[in-house]
Design a protein around this nucleic acid. Sequence first.
DNA 1: ATGAAAGCGCTAACAA
DNA 2: TTGTTAGCGCTTTCAT
Lengths: 338, 338
Amino acid sequence: MTEETAPRAAARRVGIADVAARAGVSLGTASKALNGRGRLREETRARVRAAAEELGFAPSNVARSLLTGRTFTVGVITTDSYGRFGIPVMRGAEDSLAAGEMIAFLCDSRDDPIREQHHLRKLLERRVDGIIVAGRRTDVRRPLGDDLPVPVVYAFAPSGGAHDCSVVSDERGAGRLAVRHLAKTGRRRIAHITGPHSHASARERATGMSEALAAHGLELVGEPFFGNWTEAWGRFAAAQMLRAHPDVDGVFCGNDVVARGVTDGLREAGISLPMQIGVVGVDNWGLVAEAARPPLTTVDLGLEEIGRRSAELLLDAINGRPAPGVHVVPAHLVVRES
Amino acid sequence: MTEETAPRAAARRVGIADVAARAGVSLGTASKALNGRGRLREETRARVRAAAEELGFAPSNVARSLLTGRTFTVGVITTDSYGRFGIPVMRGAEDSLAAGEMIAFLCDSRDDPIREQHHLRKLLERRVDGIIVAGRRTDVRRPLGDDLPVPVVYAFAPSGGAHDCSVVSDERGAGRLAVRHLAKTGRRRIAHITGPHSHASARERATGMSEALAAHGLELVGEPFFGNWTEAWGRFAAAQMLRAHPDVDGVFCGNDVVARGVTDGLREAGISLPMQIGVVGVDNWGLVAEAARPPLTTVDLGLEEIGRRSAELLLDAINGRPAPGVHVVPAHLVVRES
DNA sequence: ATGAAAGCGCTAACAA
DNA sequence: TTGTTAGCGCTTTCAT
């Protein structure tokens, strides 16, 4: 067998005992030195640290956890297969967690309650310190379970449980921001093209829109166009709208995908954007908003911030300071060219 | 304090000792009963199981791990912030891992080696059984570290390490499949619009394309259009191409985003698709491919399969059957209307 | 300032 | 068939 093909021998695991031996101290002393506890001579501390360094010692979190009862680990259960909403939320959560030296298990429940319970069990067996449940719809969801031994924070999709902690986006605020922008840029005849009426987000955004319209002394042109969250629907509805209300000068779209369809539909109908009609979407989904012609002005729901807040609230709860209730993360406008 | 506002008391953790007590057996017996080892009367086994069930007992994986040295946990380090490539790979990996009752820690290195080493250390401290490193470019990457105490599998971005195990997509095969499809549907004057020449994937796909063209006795029309992975580039290049070679009847695009730009560019130049020109992309990125007009025929690189294979190979390595080398996952054509 | 020893929750070898 | 016991790798009293 040549050097070339020989599999590398697995490195033996170095324990704190090895470090202690090399530094010529007892096991307990080594522990104190490495963790900065107890009273030790600075020289000893340094010697131990050096030994640990040389040996490439990585303390076993599992042994430590067994003793302390904390794993510095949380579980994130996402219902949307790492989709449009779960991803930014996860990224934000990881951000906050890393700051607390914690790390996250990722589980995808695919919206299946059975799978969700399975993952819950796996997480509990691993003694996570807490759990974040990230949904994909803004509609209220059933709690993960009752009487769980660890705190839970619901992100994006709020829990229906009375004492639960949820972090959600400001859907109404998004509608208000969008319309306020249209009004401020001089649009007076505003229409609305959005997704399914069965989605809470579509309804809430429309409600926010109505509030803002009223605040500006405006009225919606025609009825809202409820449809689905596709570009094709956006194009179709834009054409229809143009036929029914040729004098529209602003369109608030329920999300960016629809907005992109709307811009395409309008442009292909000979409208010049944003001169004749202003369009505003919701989501600030880079890929869609930036590829649209013109690039979309849109409302960012702050998904990453939802993730960050969720993780922070979870850490607080883990540390004995729970903050039950629904926490709303503000939305903000991202102005591009539409 | 009313029932309504009282915070729910944290449920006390139930241990195997509680189960044993309730079942009226010793601690060791309870363990055997629950794990199906040793010789026990079936009645006893049932009694213990029942007790565990009633108490909602969840065995502590951390205690078990300390003893057995296995955590049934792996780490996934992704370099692309859960982006276009990391996500499907992760989903596939989770798939395979769940089958082995394993669970994954997710870390996002953001392509920063410092952050990567930090995460590596955290994972090692938690005694993961193995690690998957998911990249975002197909270019070769530097190994995670040498002499690591656990097996590592590189997904998508192969490792440069001689004894390492990598799972990659078949970029050349993708180019070949695309051209073969164009040729089979009667296209004879084929052009190529793609991303940056600096990307290995752009070069490899072009190479595969050339091979397939040669196999069909065809020659590329003009030089390949190297640019960037954007729709705007696709539109621009399409117009340019049309001017230089008005008789083109097929375009192989380096990816779906470019392909979508190309279809828009061609359509807006008055070409009817797919009658006059056939277009094929690469990626099968649903969002893009399905929203294009017409929906894109494209090559799927099998990203989820890469994730699944990676996890399987990792599990094999963990179980003492490493399979070093570069494993190629085949691509396949997805026919839509373009 | 340092060492010795107990114990976290579980499994497995050995005794009964 | 069941009970008893010795650790897994570490932290943390309590002695020294």
